[in-house]
Design a protein around this nucleic acid. Structure first.
Lengths: 193, 193, 193, 193
DNA sequence: GATGAATGAGCTTTCATTCAT
DNA sequence: GATGAATGAAAGCTCATTCAT
């Protein structure tokens, strides 16, 4: 997830991520990050400008990683539906496999802690753009109803997010079958009948 | 939203809500709440036990208010689809009308700041139980596919949440027409074809 | 103990005394005194100028009460030893009977909370003066060794205080026999051999 | 008195001790300790867990120091009386030499601020145990009357405490001669006639 | 580069006191 | 006289950040 960073930075980022999921932002002190990551506070400030900087770096790294994962197998000449459903499944399985990253993005996407600059940078490497394009194509191809593609993306992404949340909170259990059903339902919600 | 509280409590709750949306929890200091609400810190502690208590009270009040609003016109003998779509529309319009309450619930539902006790109390007055029941009935009546009703509820609620978020962040614009489309898509996602 | 005060003042003084023994000065808040005494904070300030005033009043009342009790049967024409030993026994039994008053004086005699004015007023009604005089007479009469009578009084009073403290803390148990022994030892410590 | 602590801790402990004698516990704020000791509040919390921790450390350090000083020259094969009187004189001179430590122990021995754990730890290094033993030996050797040795210790210690208090409050003046007299009187109070 | 002691602003909370009712 | 809501200064404590070593 953090391959492009050096060992020390990786330790800091991973520790911060785990702490932020486990505790509140305010309870995740620099002293705690230092202790758990085995890096002194002084060194943390050598590698990151501030606490905000760590969290913004985390944000960008995770969004980029998620983008790459979701778009894995995206640029093929298979049918739109195949490519779309593959992206959806990637999304769901990614969230289940990296729950910390998933929860982090959930919690911090709308936080004032994340600079607009980070969001813009993240957008470049995220799945949002390419997927939106494919939605537009699906509408063009009369596969999907005439609807704002952004709205459709949000609608579908929201479904996945909340179902995964339900799974992670143990309010429901996601199985392979249910993931299949979920993807089918997602298709149906936008499909031209 | 806070009718059952006295004037001072209302001022404190409303101010806290606004501040929590505008700033982080940690940046929403008691001193700031005091200043913005026109109530001294001492008085705040006269009406609420602690900062946590304010936020928990906020949570319970909003969930209860949301429950009442969503379930407005729910207990009728109209067809299931009518009742369900009315609840969905209530949900969406409520979120657009009280965006601060909507965002607050979004941000704090999973926060350790909200006591389990508050969540339990809130559940009683929320829409979650009654709506889940109606989903079960819809499945029973072969209107909806055979799927875990909780999963369906999560799936649908997630759609609404993310579409509303998109609207509030000005990434898309919700119009009456689009709300209609959204509700139709929601039905189709679960409908037996 | 507080006969010269009216009912409300008595309730306040007695409650404050009990609280001060049970808790620290800082933990004995006006709000707590109000609650436990059944008098509103407003009324407390009607009867006493401040928290300090209550404690100073307590001090004066208890020292005066102690003085009267210790000097009970003091002004007789019995032999010096009889009168002295009676005063000593009064002291010990008073401390055992009114442990709260005893502990209060112990804790607050040297506290900056007690105004010098209170100490001076208290001295007038206390046992210290008359007893010091009798010590001087005992020295004059060659019953006691040539020693500063104040020093002797302090020496003896300290013995009593610490033995009673030991008893109240359950480190030792005072019986009638032991009180007799203690008084005899006290006499012997100063007696001309 | 605080040799085993580092410079910063020594400054904090010594400043706290002086302030606690001069002012009330509640008036001895961390801010004041910081200012007077030349250490920032943050640093104080680096070296001590809390205000309570400082005071408990103070308690343990002083009791241990007092124990060592009082028991200086205690374990010899000189006669009991010599050893006992030496310990008494050590006690008195220690109190006169370190009046702040003396007053602190006087005021805080019975305070809920001192944890039982601190008292237990302090007991190990204090003079109370060894001295109590020697009293028992003195009774065994028929030098002292048949009396609970704990009661005798309390009785004697109380005498010293109150005489020293009288001296420190300038109600009387202790000279070498008077200390001699005091020790003799102490012996006589318990001696078999 | 690495360390962690030191800083001090700012946090939540308490509480003696006041004053409108 | 009695009440208790309201006040706000000041308490203990935390923590992002700095900097001498």
């Amino acid at each position: 997830m953090f391959e492009k960073y050096n060992k020390v930075q990786q330790a800091i980022l991973q520790t911060t991520l785990s702490l932020l999921i486990e505790k509140e932002l305010q309870a995740t002190s620099m002293a705690l990050i230092a202790k758990k990551s085995g890096v002194s506070t002084g060194s943390i400030y050598h590698y990151f400008e501030s606490k905000e900087a760590i969290i913004n770096e985390l944000y960008k790294a995770i969004v980029t990683f998620n983008g790459e994962t979701v778009l894995n197998g995206f640029y093929t000449d298979e049918p739109i539906r195949t490519r779309l459903e593959r992206a959806w499944e990637n999304m769901i399985r990614l969230s289940l496999r990296y729950p910390e990253g998933f929860q982090f993005i959930e919690q911090y996407s709308f936080s004032p802690y994340i600079y607009d600059e980070s969001k813009r940078e993240a957008y470049e490497g995220g799945w949002c753009g390419p997927l939106g394009q494919l939605y537009a194509e699906a509408i063009e191809a009369k596969l999907f109803i005439e609807m704002d593609p952004h709205l459709l993306v949000q609608m579908h992404y929201g479904s996945f997010v909340y179902v995964v949340k339900g799974h992670l909170n143990r309010h429901l259990t996601l199985t392979d079958d249910r993931i299949k059903q979920l993807i089918e339902a997602t298709w149906n919600s936008a499909a031209v009948q």
